[in-house]
């Protein structure tokens, strides 16, 4: 059995775009488009582009907030300091680790939850969706505190409930070591953002045409075959978009680390490093350099996904 894709349907206008001089109508439409999208574009420039440009500019200076008089231009010096520092690479490694682990687990869990939501009885569906979405509605700092209290040695219940597990006892200090701290941080992240990924996957699942499923069933395909050959290929775009969004998000992890360990035991992430240079040390230049490098990492991830995996964002929105 080969991969089955739906016949190309043309939901868009289907009219070939005028190649020569645009007609009056097209020009008017284009103008309308700018008028409609213009304000949003201007707002985006103001709230996104301006801070990015400002950060890039600041990163070229040695600039301390309490000592603005001694601001001096250092060129790419700040980047050199950051990139030759082992702390940066260690934080980078921790961030990559958290990202890979959480996104992989969330994808599997989220897919399972999406299937459950899809197959659930009609009457049950709204309740189920609300229940699954609930963690996502909770503020990250609050969820981080909840997980911290749960695993805390004095206030937590985890040590008493899970004492039967090897390696867990009443005296297990989860936040006293790198591995266990990262485990709790990852758990909190997974618990909180799996609903987001499952919601995106649910949208993808709903797009798989029933006719294909029925045809495969008639052909005698098993559930697993239908999943592999029909469902997943047809929702590849949705999966890639879900992965992309979550990876970008996971790479900027901050709240859980800040609340649970405050960076102790080698759990610092790249965002945390940027926070400490800018907000705690007040070294605006150095902190901006870290932020710019974080931004570049995120851009690279997005670019890699879009080029490497051929993610088509417009397809996920159902435009094609």
């Amino acid at each position: 059995m080969t991969t089955t894709a739906p016949p190309p349907t043309d939901v868009a206008t289907g009219r070939p775009a005028p190649t020569g001089g645009a007609s009056d109508r097209v020009r008017a439409e284009r103008r309308l488009g700018w008028i409609l999208a213009g304000p949003a574009f201007a707002v985006m420039l103001l709230v996104t582009a301006y801070p990015i440009v400002q950060a890039v500019y600041d990163s070229l200076f040695s600039y301390r907030l309490t000592d603005p008089g001694n601001r001096s231009f250092v060129g790419l010096g700040n980047y050199w300091v950051v990139l030759t520092d082992t702390l940066w690479w260690q934080s980078f490694g921790v961030t990559v680790l958290i990202t890979v682990v959480t996104v992989a687990v969330e994808l599997v869990l989220g897919f399972a939850l999406a299937l459950v939501m899809l197959k659930a009885l009609k009457g049950l569906r709204p309740i189920l969706r609300a229940a699954i979405l609930l963690p996502y509605a909770i503020i990250t700092v609050v969820s981080a505190f909840a997980w911290q209290f749960a695993f805390d040695l004095t206030s937590g219940f985890v040590n008493t409930w899970f004492a039967w597990l090897p390696g867990v006892s009443a005296d297990t200090d989860w936040f006293g070591g790198t591995g266990t701290s990262l485990l709790v941080i990852c758990l909190a992240e997974i618990w909180k953002t799996t609903p987001f990924i499952s919601l995106l996957l649910l949208a993808g699942l709903a797009q798989v045409p029933d006719v294909l499923q029925e045809a495969a069933q008639v052909d005698g395909a098993t559930w697993w075959q239908r999943m592999r050959k029909v469902t997943i290929p047809n929702m590849k775009a949705a999966i890639m978009v879900a992965l992309l969004f979550r990876t970008l998000d996971a790479f900027r992890v901050f709240d859980s680390v800040f609340v649970m360990t405050a960076g102790a035991n080698g759990t610092e992430t790249v965002s945390f490093l940027a926070y400490r240079q800018t907000i705690a040390r007040l070294e605006i230049g150095l902190g901006s350099a870290v932020s710019v490098l974080l931004f570049l990492s995120v851009v690279l991830i997005a670019f890699g996904f879009i080029k490497g995996f051929k993610v088509d964002l417009s397809q996920a929105r159902g435009e094609k």
């Binding site: 300091v81 950051v82 520092d85 702390l87 490093l273 240079q277 705690a280 040390r281 070294e283 150095l286």
Partner: peptide
């Protein structure tokens, strides 16, 4: 190193 701006904190 931190005070002379040579290292991150």
């Amino acid at each position: 190193a931190v005070l002379s701006g040579e290292e991150l904190l």
